[in-house]
Simulated scan of single mutants.
Amino acid sequence: MNTTARDVVERVLRAGRDLDVDRFVGLMAPDGYIEWPFRPPGVPARVRGRDDIRRHLTEVGDGFIRIAEHRNVVVHETTDPEAVIVEYEARGTVVPTGAAFEQTVVAVFRVRDGQILSYRDYINPLPLLDALASVSGGVRA
Rank of each mutant, 00 (worst) to 15 (best):
G42P: 00
V43P: 00
P44D: 10
A45S: 14
A45Y: 11
V47F: 04
R48L: 05
R48C: 13
R50I: 04
R50C: 03
D51C: 07
D51K: 08
R54N: 06
R54D: 03
R55E: 14
R55Y: 08
H56I: 08
H56W: 14
L57K: 01
D62A: 15
G63Q: 07
G63T: 01
F64Q: 02
R66N: 02
I67A: 02
I67V: 15
A68D: 15
E69G: 05
R71C: 11
N72F: 14
V73P: 01
V73T: 15
T78P: 00
T78G: 00
T79V: 12
D80S: 15
P81W: 01
A83S: 07
V84P: 03
I85L: 13
V86Q: 03
T93H: 04
P96W: 03
T97F: 05
E102A: 13
E102M: 07
V105L: 11
V106H: 08
V106L: 11
F109L: 06
F109D: 00
F109N: 04
R110P: 02
R112E: 11
D113L: 05
G114N: 01
S118F: 06
S118L: 03
S118A: 15
Y119N: 09
R120C: 08
R120V: 12
R120W: 02
Y122H: 14
